[in-house]
Design a binder for these strands. Structure first.
Lengths: 96, 96
DNA sequence: TAACTATTTAGATAATTTTCTAAATTGTTC
DNA sequence: GAACAATTTAGAAAATTATCTAAATAGTTA
């Protein structure tokens, strides 16, 4: 179930862009929304889904809510992909 | 664009199950459909999406169409995930 | 405490995705 | 070539997801 949520979360391009943004540093909800041509409420909805999937976490400061990336959740996805037997070359299969 | 299609494709549990099934060996469309409590047409639809994402390929034999897994497509996804900076431990980051 | 700021929640609509049944296609066999 | 078998395509309905505007929350500051 957890993986389904993770994969659903990253299947949307807006949400992937949010993750990419947070790769550098944490941003407030407003700052994140500012990057998109979408309403604040819509971005808030995407943040909620990412949060539910544990791909991001939040911490409040003043009256801002800052979001940060939590990429460790991808472990399960990687295990699944490697389990399928990657056809590629560059990635280190040995450990999987 | 390619990655979006890949991630959309694997965001559905039925399609992931199809990939898992094909991990062992190739199966005909009918054999695949037999694994699910869904109509043949619905499974055919899922196979089409997987095919469009190049996650599977087909080869005809008699009047069967056999499908096989093509996991090499995951390369791009893995690169993206590693680019995000995996928080885990077990996976070999060095190459990414 | 009143006004303000940042963000979320509610409720509605639009868009996309999944599913079904029925019909069409493609290839096989008698 | 007619009947059959495996699969896909078409078209419609159901379910889910993404989006918006307006209202509600919660925390801050004057």
């Amino acid at each position: 179930m957890a993986m389904n949520q993770t994969l659903k979360a990253i299947s949307d391009p807006v949400r992937r862009q949010i993750l990419e943004l947070l790769k550098a540093k944490s941003y407030s909800a407003g700052e994140i929304a500012g990057q998109f041509d979408l309403s604040q409420a819509t971005v808030s909805y995407h943040l909620k889904l990412l949060k539910q999937a544990s791909l991001i976490s939040e911490h409040k400061q003043k009256n801002f809510i800052y979001y940060e990336l939590n990429a460790s959740v991808f472990e399960e996805v990687l295990t699944w992909i490697y389990g399928l037997g990657i056809g590629g070359n560059d990635h280190d299969k040995a450990h999987h």
